[in-house]
Design a protein around this nucleic acid. Sequence first.
DNA 1: ACCCTTGTTGCAAACGATTTGCATTTGCAT
DNA 2: ATGCAAATGCAAATCGTTTGCAACAAGGGT
Lengths: 137, 137
Amino acid sequence: MEQHRDYESELRQAGVRLTKPRKVILKIIGESEDHPDAMAIFRRAVKIDASISLATVYRTMKLLEELGAVHRHSFEGGPARFENADGEHHDHLIDLDTGKVIEFHSETLEKLQEQIADELGYDIEHHRLELYGRKRR
Amino acid sequence: MEQHRDYESELRQAGVRLTKPRKVILKIIGESEDHPDAMAIFRRAVKIDASISLATVYRTMKLLEELGAVHRHSFEGGPARFENADGEHHDHLIDLDTGKVIEFHSETLEKLQEQIADELGYDIEHHRLELYGRKRR
DNA sequence: ACCCTTGTTGCAAACGATTTGCATTTGCAT
DNA sequence: ATGCAAATGCAAATCGTTTGCAACAAGGGT
Ligand SMILES: [Mn+2]
Ligand SMILES: [Mn+2]
Ligand SMILES: [Zn+2]
Ligand SMILES: [Zn+2]
């Protein structure tokens, strides 16, 4: 049983209106276990409220990203994909055969990146680490 | 004094025709020290041969990428950028204030990625590591 | 409960990057 | 030099995403 962030309170607190489409989208990304793209979110949203538009999905995702409620990923090839910003930081391994996205986290790796940036005189704001591979057999 | 790959021989060997536009583009990416996008390559190409089209730049970059002669990067925000596949593997740190692209390489980091993929039962085909940061001061 | 203001929506058109169909040109093997 | 497939330039098409605008609705004040 997962503990989800209360996005509705966060939105309200950010001073934006809690509209019907937003509630629907919020619910969808709140309970998504995968990394859906805008079209996938749109399709799921339409099932709940047929009047929602794709433009609103895009606008909402941008808003949520700016509020830090979701993360946007741009994996090779496809369109941008999203995931809620719950849980701790992780990176992704993409299975080139199946397209499956596997999450992983390595504190050593994170520290090493910090160290490299530090040696170059930089502070990391964020990073992107994606491994593309195939199942060993 | 750098030693550059002989792209023309490689193309010929790959069975593709060595056309005028291709020679021009090959020369451009062969001597580029930066990470130009298609439009930048196009602008440089037009100076050498005014009849070259942007479509041909795109087609040629795709061809060169498939031949393994260039690498395509999709940094945050902008269009795809290219660099010749000479020299050894490296990753990139993007200065968020200036847009400057800094190259770095860490064998430890590379090994660690291999190890992580291995633990997940995968062989890495390629990866993407980009650090986005600002100069420490 | 009813206004009123202003943010938000749906729609369609615009967008930026990249790809593609097609008629014409060109490389290059013969 | 000739012939033919491959490559080109151009314009139109595509894809993912953004935006202008008129209609709509959230939610604070009455
Ligand atoms: Mn994830
Ligand atoms: Mn580079
Ligand atoms: Zn990470
Ligand atoms: Zn690397």
